[in-house]
Amino acid sequence: MMNRRRAILGGLGLAGVAGLGAWGLGQWGLHREIVSVLHRRLSFLKLDDEGVRAFAKDQTAAAFNKKIPSVARLRYHFLSTGAPSSKRFYRSSDQRSRVARLEDTLISNYLLSSDFFSNGADESRTIKYVAYYDPMRGCQNPFARPAVDPRATA
């Protein structure tokens, strides 16, 4: 009886260690991939290496911090997978691959998190990471202009 319990606990312990290992490996892999994508796709810009790594760390944390979906949401996703195509309205003509779109979103996130747009999108300057882009902080859209143009009333 005791041996069996030990075996089960041992198995659970090993699974836990393996899970933690996979978790860590996943984070490390994602971090590395983000750094690689940014350097590859933005090779024509000067990137601050330390800032890129800091962004990759924050982006990885954001990806891993996503809340665990509720049972209802999981059920929804499960059903959605098997839904007949005639009942799925979300069809896209986007020619980019899913990976390319993910990369585009990642790069957008990086640039919006940097001083790039606040410096007038000057491509000759070294881009510095400022803080992870979070629209929840309010008024982070670098392109938006106020309804009342201050120059018009000056």
């Binding site: 993910l102 585009d104 957008s108 938006a144």
Partner: peptide, 20 residues
């Protein structure tokens, strides 16, 4: 008029000088 709005991914254009 927002580059990040709900499901609108990839809203920036990945070309020099033509981001928005």
């Amino acid at each position: 008029s927002s580059p990040f709005a709900y499901k609108l991914d990839g809203a920036l254009r990945m070309e020099r000088g033509r981001w928005n």
